Structures are given as structure tokens and as C-alpha cells.
Simulated assay, not measured.
Amino acid sequence: MARNDLKGKVVLIAGGAKNLGGLLSRSFAEKGANLAIHYNSEGARVDAEKTLADVKAAGAKAFLFQGDLTKVANVTKFFDEAVATLGGIDIAVNTVGMVLKKPFVETTEAEYDTMFAVNSKAAYFFLQEAGKKLNDNGKVCTIVTSLLAAYTGLYSTYAGAKSPVEHFTRAASKEFGARGISVTAVAPGPMDTPFFYPAETKDSVSYHTAASALGGLTNIKDIAPLVEFLVTDGWWITGQTIFANGGYTTR
């Protein structure tokens, strides 16, 4: 089977109900994959059920899993249900994230704990379960942020909590490589989705829109093909964080 052949493969997606995750769920289904789709809260149920209906209409076997992935037991249960329901896992993608834009001196302990739980802890144990449960020659990709390469204030807990995922990616790729498993992270620029706008003002939206060399906010349609490439033909790329942001930041 060609590495880019997704027919019959099982793809597990954390945050797979809407925005980038929803687009990936639909795209993988259209290419013949079966889906384990996670969503976090009741507020996302309608989107999750619509995504499930769409992927099933594309011919995929699929199921929904609701749970707070900051609780490790839920991460384990999600992977276990994918194995039990779909027979194994070939690809795991984690799109989960949470933004807080706030001055350093105003951030509370509770906000710090929540941000690191969502952006760092959940990502760590997602990778851990992938290392335990993925089939040999599996693929893992985590969505981080291009703010990792920015010199800026106000996002200390968001960029700070995503930054450990770069090392988690390197460490996991080194440890899982003997089984043919590649591990990558993708760092989009500010994405034109409902995830982006609540933390921003009209002026900051204008700034972010103008900051990329190619102009405009990142479109999820430009990120999904990169994720798909990394978990298929691009499998030889491992341990890397790929900045895909139209020239918003670089290293």
C-alpha cells in the first residue's frame, strides 16, 4: 500500500468536530479513511454531529467521543474506543488548543493552570497514548502556533503552553521512530476561524491580517493539506515543527 493511500486507514482527531479539525475529518473521509472524532463540550455537539453525518455520507466508518482531554483518563478512553470500534489507529492528529491574550501581570493562577492543561498537558498525554496505541508505521501531528517564533507580549500563557509541544514532538519522534512512527507539529499563523476572534480587538485583527508577507490571516484550507501531507507522503519529516503562516513569523 502506498504511503499516501488513506483508504481503510483509521484517523483519530482530537478537536475534530469543527474549524480545522472538522475540515480534516471531512477530507480524510473523502479519501477513504475511517474516523474517530473527538469534541470537548456540549457546546460543540451540533457541529460534531454534523461532521459525523458528513463523514458517514462520504462512506467512512466513524464515531464521536466527547471528553475533556486535560483528564488523562479521557485521552486513554478515546484511544481505546478507537481501537475497539475501528480495529486500530494509523494516524493521530491533535488540533486542541485554547487562547488567552492577557498582560503577564494580570494573569491568574487559575488561568495559568487551565492554559497549560489544555495546550501542554493534553498534548503530552495525547502523544503518550499515540506511542502506546498507534499501529506500526503510524503518524502523529499536533497543531501548535506560529507565536512560538514571535517576539511579543500578551500571549505568555498561550505561546508558553504550546512551546513545550515542540520538545514533546522531538522526544516522541526519537522514541517512537524504531516502530516507523513519525511525529510532527504544525504552527499556523492566526487562523480565520471563530477560535481566533474572541481574544482580539478590531485593531489587533487588522494588525495580524497585515503582518504576514503574503497578506491575510491563515486559511484552514491552506493548513489541512500540509497536515495530510505530513501523515502520508511527508512521513520522512519527523521531530519537526513546520511554520505555515504566509510569512507571519519565521526563525
Rank of each mutant, 00 (worst) to 15 (best):
A2G: 08
R3N: 13
A17M: 04
A17H: 08
L20C: 04
G21M: 06
R26K: 15
F28P: 14
A29N: 12
G32M: 13
G32W: 06
N34T: 10
L35G: 00
A36Q: 09
N40Q: 11
G43C: 05
R45K: 15
K50V: 13
A53Y: 04
V55M: 01
K56Q: 15
K56L: 14
G59D: 06
K61E: 14
A73E: 15
K77F: 01
F79D: 08
E81P: 07
A84I: 07
I91A: 10
A92G: 01
V93N: 01
V96Q: 08
M98S: 07
V105H: 12
E106H: 09
E109K: 13
D113C: 12
K121N: 11
K121Y: 09
Y124F: 15
F126Q: 11
L127Q: 13
G131N: 10
K133R: 14
K133D: 00
D136P: 12
L147W: 09
L148C: 05
A150G: 03
A150F: 00
Y151F: 09
Y158F: 08
Y158D: 11
A161R: 00
S163L: 02
V165D: 02
H167F: 07
F168S: 04
R170K: 15
S173I: 14
E175N: 04
G177E: 03
G177V: 07
V183R: 02
T184R: 02
V186T: 03
V186D: 10
G189W: 05
P190N: 06
M191K: 11
D192E: 14
F195D: 07
F196G: 06
P198W: 00
K202D: 14
D203H: 01
S206W: 00
Y207P: 07
T209H: 15
S212D: 13
L214I: 04
L214M: 15
G216W: 06
L217S: 02
L226D: 15
D233T: 00
Q240G: 00
A244T: 13
N245A: 04
T249W: 01
